[in-house]
Design a protein around this nucleic acid. Structure first.
Lengths: 334, 334
DNA sequence: CTGAAAGCGCTTACAG
DNA sequence: CTGAAAGCGCTTACAG
């Protein structure tokens, strides 16, 4: 028995036309239930799969989304655990909508990459995760008029879709918890100062301090880049500038863990001497020792919204900006 | 000026046939240098890109590789930093050979996924990274006769390509370092006991102990799953079974960092009281505090070999098994 | 060196 | 409800 490779083969077996097979497989209402079932059974029996490149050519649509992240930068890939966690939920959401997920390979010095993927029909749009170098990665997309959605706070007058966390509220929740447990010298171990999400969290942090009658002390505020490395580097700085600090609100879980590590090395106990709160609730947070109290962004939902709102944009052209809710996950570090 | 979207448009502009345009763009030796340059200049001027789905249909080859990893399991995606680091180098290597990288979405309870990607022509082969559930993920691939390459030690009588690290040597290098610095009660904080790579490392560990005249003590040996979580969970066990341990050789950098964290929490200093060595030299290793001494597997090279050997297999059918060299990166934790 | 033509395997407007 | 035919945009054997 020779393999059934094309709808023509299947049509011959079923003694119908290619059109009918095509319609039966795509569940067209034009085809009678009985015919449809017969053809589908035949297809299943022969392990038949539609040829997808042919389908894409015919439909002039790739049903593929490009994932843009520093993990696939050409020169210096950045391995950020956040990327990987959100990648999983994006993949799930796209899969259930019948879309493939392509890792876009980016040369940050080149502005042609969106065209390379888009004009060539390899991708219908992009999901962009680019924590620290937003402008640089976004510009070529805007220039190429590429359909895309970004994780992060939109810049004013942006015409692209975004999904973001509620940063001001995240900053509030963390700071309120620290204030409520009696901390008075609370440090802000931030991400890049230029980022709107960092500013949002800082605003939440400062408001909460003021409401509690605590001063906002610049010596307690530093900016890093979300990485473990920057947490390890900045914690000693913080301790030097403010030896009496009794809490740290970090911009990411890796930063929080780096901070805990440094604090212990320098003889401070966590949470007794210094309470620490992270951000994102990555899988590592629950397993850290002590288990990390952290602000959860519901990355599962975030991934789904990134996928669904981009697909919706492709269909309708409607630009959406959504904000996923944020909650404090209380564990032992604060 | 209306967009130049197909080689037919370009052919009209250049006053040649579609065949000539196609050949010029694919750099065929049949075309004269002058004609070729003229056509290519025209293509560049109009931002022309070949339609890739059409090309794939015509060539009956997708020029796309599927990346299989627990990061995209349907039910419970696993965010392992190792995955992300190797993904970057795989992406680079595939890109420079003209291949796209698709994230395969896997339902581990379903054996159809390789066919779904392969028979439908979406993918020419797979790169498989599946640390802890090898058999389960490999079986459907073997069954579907899918071309693939795996990161890891091949099981006996396997007919697929592999790239692996030199585990026995990794185990030796780490243990030798610990012995040389005077440690006598060295714990093995392993990965899954059933894995050949873990057995390889353990063999290197035990041999080195014996050569140094030290006993192999079962109380010093435990098995986890490479994750930060399992490091955090098993370090107290180890300490209970062997309170006098003075070194830990961990199966991954996250495990090593979890161990350091626990040790400090329990009042042991690192490296003074207990030396710790990790595995993989992920970016976090250099930034840990103290900076982690670790066994480096050269993931850059590993990624390149995964890509190149798979492509070579697709061309020639030659099954390769290669082993990337391993070296000890000496930092401060041991 | 160049071109006309067939073919890759789908989808769908059109006709019945 | 079903089929014949055109079309999606490439590549390449064949003929010149």
């Amino acid at each position: 028995m020779n393999r059934v490779k094309t709808i023509a083969d299947l049509a011959r077996l079923a003694a119908v036309s290619k059109s009918t097979v095509s319609r039966a497989l795509s569940d067209s209402p034009l085809i009678g239930r009985e015919t449809k079932e017969r053809i589908r059974a035949l297809a299943a029996a022969h392990d038949f799969r539609l040829n997808i490149p042919a389908r894409r050519l015919s439909l002039r649509r790739s049903n593929t989304i490009g994932f843009v992240s520093p993990a696939c930068y050409e020169d210096s890939p950045v391995a950020d655990p956040f990327t990987l966690e959100i990648l999983g939920s994006v993949s799930n959401a796209l899969h259930s909508r019948g879309y493939d997920l392509l890792m876009a390979h980016i040369n940050p010095r080149d502005r042609e990459w969106p065209k390379e993927y888009l004009i060539s029909g390899r991708v219908d749009g992009f999901i962009v995760l680019t924590s620290s170098r937003k402008e640089r990665d976004i510009a070529p997309l805007v220039e190429a008029e590429a359909p895309f959605i970004m994780w992060g706070v939109p810049s004013p007058r942006s015409r692209y879709c975004t999904v973001t966390g509620d940063n001001a509220r995240g900053g509030r929740l963390a700071t309120e918890r620290l204030v409520a447990t009696g901390r008075r010298r609370i440090a802000f171990l931030g991400g890049p100062a230029a980022e709107l999400e960092v500013q949002g969290r800082q605003a939440g942090y400062e408001e909460t301090l003021r409401e509690a009658g605590l001063p906002v002390d610049p010596a307690l505020i530093v900016y890093g880049d979300y990485s473990f490395a920057s947490g390890a580097q900045l914690t000693p700085t913080l301790l030097r500038q403010a030896p009496d600090l009794d809490a740290i609100f970090a911009a990411s879980d890796p930063m929080a863990m780096a901070a805990i590590n440094c604090l212990r090395e320098l003889g401070r106990r966590v949470p007794q001497d210094v309470a620490v709160i992270g951000y994102d609730n990555l899988s590592m947070a629950a397993q850290s020792s002590p288990p990390l109290t952290t602000v959860s962004q519901n990355l599962r939902l975030a991934g789904r919204l990134l996928a669904e709102n981009l697909l919706q944009y492709l269909e309708t052209g409607v630009v959406t900006h959504v904000c996923v809710p944020v909650e404090l996950v209380e564990r032992e570090s604060a």
